[in-house]
Design a protein around this nucleic acid. Structure first.
Lengths: 121, 121
DNA sequence: CTGTGTGCAAACACTTTGCAGGTGT
DNA sequence: ACACCTGCAAAGTGTTTGCACACAG
């Protein structure tokens, strides 16, 4: 049984060709994909609307990628977007704790650093 | 002469009713405004297209708000979005320097923290 | 078999472009 | 007077909704 299949099972979602395909694409790309990126990597005849619904289903079920499981997400790392090649990747660096003004309660942080990456330097 | 008028002069932009109106809205709101927010605060008969062009003009000329001048921008602070009231505000806290992996050169950082704000706690 | 997922069509929302005419300087 | 700005119409792009049929479980 394939990895996508298992993931779908884990989240109690029905295994369909479209969902498997989308998961394959997630798994084989290390950097962040935009909706357009995914659409471009899907078979040409794949229905746009179904893709919207598939992604929404994944979102609703918190099925992000192989680093996230039912146990929780691991998104507290820094994202880096290269302004040359355009790729957004996840760095193995945690977002540092920030001391906020009185009364502010943080729940989620998102740090995006833009610049030039390793490869484009 | 009004504040918006002066700002427009400073940036060598023509002073028109629409531009003054948009600047008034920026100046009187301390939190971040979405395109929709601005549209909602504009006179009902104001043309959407003109608003798009006005905002683009301001962007192109780096005319963000009263904290930014021709001398440069001051955007290196943390943004906080309250998940209850929906408002995004600027905190007087700098984004800490991050040690990046070899080869990565940062140019700009953006840290958005979500949670509950002072007022909604 | 039953409920969910898919595909198609159409509606909807958002943004950009072209052009004629108006306005600030 | 001239260049720039505005308003309208229309095209382009991205996203959502409704419904009949197909398919996984």
């Amino acid at each position: 049984m394939s990895a996508p299949d298992n993931l779908l099972k884990d989240f109690q979602l029905r295994s369909t060709p479209g969902r498997q395909e989308v998961l394959q694409i997630f798994l084989k790309n290390s950097y962040a994909l935009s909706h357009g990126d995914i659409e471009r990597e899907m078979p040409l005849d794949f229905d746009r609307v179904t893709l919207y619904r598939t992604l929404k289903t994944f979102l609703d079920n918190a099925l992000c990628n192989n680093n996230c499981s039912t146990a929780g997400h691991h998104h507290n790392h820094v994202h880096f977007k290269c302004t040359i090649c355009g790729q957004t990747s996840c760095l193995e660096v945690e977002i540092p704790g920030i001391k906020l003004p009185k009364g502010y309660k943080p729940v989620e942080s998102n740090l995006l650093i833009q610049g030039t990456c390793q490869h484009c330097a």
